[in-house]
Design a protein around this nucleic acid. Sequence first.
DNA 1: GGCACGTTAACTGTTGACAATCTACCTGTC
DNA 2: GACAGGTAGATTGTCAACAGTTAACGTGCC
Lengths: 247, 247
Amino acid sequence: MTTLAHKQLWEAVSDRLRDDILDGRLAAGTRLVETELADRFGVSRGPIRDALRELSRTGLAVDVPRRGTFVSSLTERDLDEVYVIRRAIEESAVRLTIERADDAGITEMFRALDAAEAAYAGDDLAAAWDADMAFHRSYCRLSGNGRLLALFENLASQTVLLMRTTLDSHASLAWTPPVEVHRRIANAIAARDPDAATLAVGAHYQYTQDRLHASDTPDGRATSGAPAASDASDAPPASSGEGISAG
Amino acid sequence: MTTLAHKQLWEAVSDRLRDDILDGRLAAGTRLVETELADRFGVSRGPIRDALRELSRTGLAVDVPRRGTFVSSLTERDLDEVYVIRRAIEESAVRLTIERADDAGITEMFRALDAAEAAYAGDDLAAAWDADMAFHRSYCRLSGNGRLLALFENLASQTVLLMRTTLDSHASLAWTPPVEVHRRIANAIAARDPDAATLAVGAHYQYTQDRLHASDTPDGRATSGAPAASDASDAPPASSGEGISAG
DNA sequence: GGCACGTTAACTGTTGACAATCTACCTGTC
DNA sequence: GACAGGTAGATTGTCAACAGTTAACGTGCC
C-alpha cells in the first residue's frame, strides 16, 4: 500500500506498542516510561519518544508534559465524540464514493462486507471488529479523500481500543452484529443513491449508539467509567475530550 | 484558555514557525533544515524535531523520511479535501451546539460573528480570515466535542495557509466576504433549528466552493497549481492527499 | 493523629556527538 | 555530447549523557 521503504525505528516501536494496546496487553492508564521501553526494545530514547508521540497523535495514548505518556483510558463520552465525527465524515464519504468509485472499487467494498459478516459469524470478536473496520475503511478509501481516510484510521483505532477494553459493558454489541445496517450502506452505494447511503450511515450509527447506551448502568453512567486504576502510583489523567489529537 | 504552564521549547519553536508559515515569511515548499533552525533559535535539534513533527501533524508541513521537512504547498485539491471534512464536521457541530449551548455561548458566537463582519469591512485580509475562523471556531467549541474542536483547528490552519499563499487566485473570495451565509448559520443556531443550521452550513460551503472554482483558469486548472519552486535544489514533494495528518 | 515542609529518587526535557543515508556534483566512457 | 558510475558533502536518524522538574516519601511540628 504505502512505500515499502525500510521502517524507521520509531515506526516499528509504534506498531508494536499499538498492537500491545489494542490487544489489551497494555492496560488503559498504564504509564509508558521512556527509559523502560528503550531497554525493552533495545533502542535509545529518541525513537521511543517519537513512537509515543505517534501514539498520542492516534489517540491511543495521552501525553502530559513533564509527567509522561499514558495508555488512553477512553470513556463512553470519548466514544460518543468519536462516533459523532465518524458519522459526519462517513456520511460524506459515501457520497464521494458514489461520485467517484468505479465498479472494481464497489466489488472490493462488498468483499470487505462479506469478510466482516463471516468474521461476526465466528467467535473471534477482535477479528470481527477488525473486519468491521475494514468495511468502513473500504468506502472511506474509495472516497478519494486522503485526509478523510487518515482521519478515519485515527478514529477507528480509538473505536477498537474502547471496544476491546470495555468488552464487558458493550458485550451486547457483539451479540447483535450490525450486518443489516452494513449491507444497507453497501447496497445504497452500489445503487448510486447518495441520499439512501447517507441515511444508511446515519442509521448505522443510530443503531450502534442505541446498543451502546442500552448497556449503561441503570443510573445512566457507563459501567466502565472509572479510570480502572491498575496501580495507585500510576495515576492516569482524565483523558476526556481535550488533549486527544483526534485531528 | 489552556494551562499557563511555561511552554516547552519545541512549543515555542512550533508557534514561531507556524506564524512564519501562515504569514508567508516561509514560502510553500521551503525546506526546513533542522540544524539551520537549531542555530537560528539557539536550541538543540531535539526540540526542533518535535516542532517540525507538530507542524506536520497540523498539516502545515510535510515530513519525508530521510529527506527532510518541507513547508506544505497545498493545492486546490487539498483545499477541496479540507472543505469536505470541514463541512461534514461543522454540520454536526451546529446540531450539537443547538442541543447543548446555553444563551451565554450563543451570545459569544454572535460576538465572533460581528467581529468577523467588521474585519471583512476593513482592509486587512489576514485579520479578516482569522476572524472568520474565530466565528466557525465558536460553534465548534460550543458543540462540546473536544475532538471535533481539535480537528477544526487542524483544518482551519490548512485553510488559512492556502488562503494566504494563494491570495491572488482566490482574491474573488475576499471581495465578496461570506457575511450573509455566516449570519444565516448563526441565526439558525439561535433559533434552535437544527435542519436550518445544517442547511446553512452546507450553503456556506457551497458558496465558498463556487467562489473558489470561479477563480480557476479557463482550462480548469488552478492558477496556483504548480509547486511554486522557489529554488531548484529545494524540491518539495507533492503534498496532495496522503501523508497529511488531517486526523 | 494530621498537616506542612524538606529531602530524595525517578523521569522527562534538552543537549551534543556519531553513524547511516541521500543528494548533488564530478569524472570517465560510449 | 549524453549517460552511467563514483565520490564528496550535507542532512537526517540514532545514541548516550546532563540538567531541571515533578512526584513520592519521610520527618518534624502543631
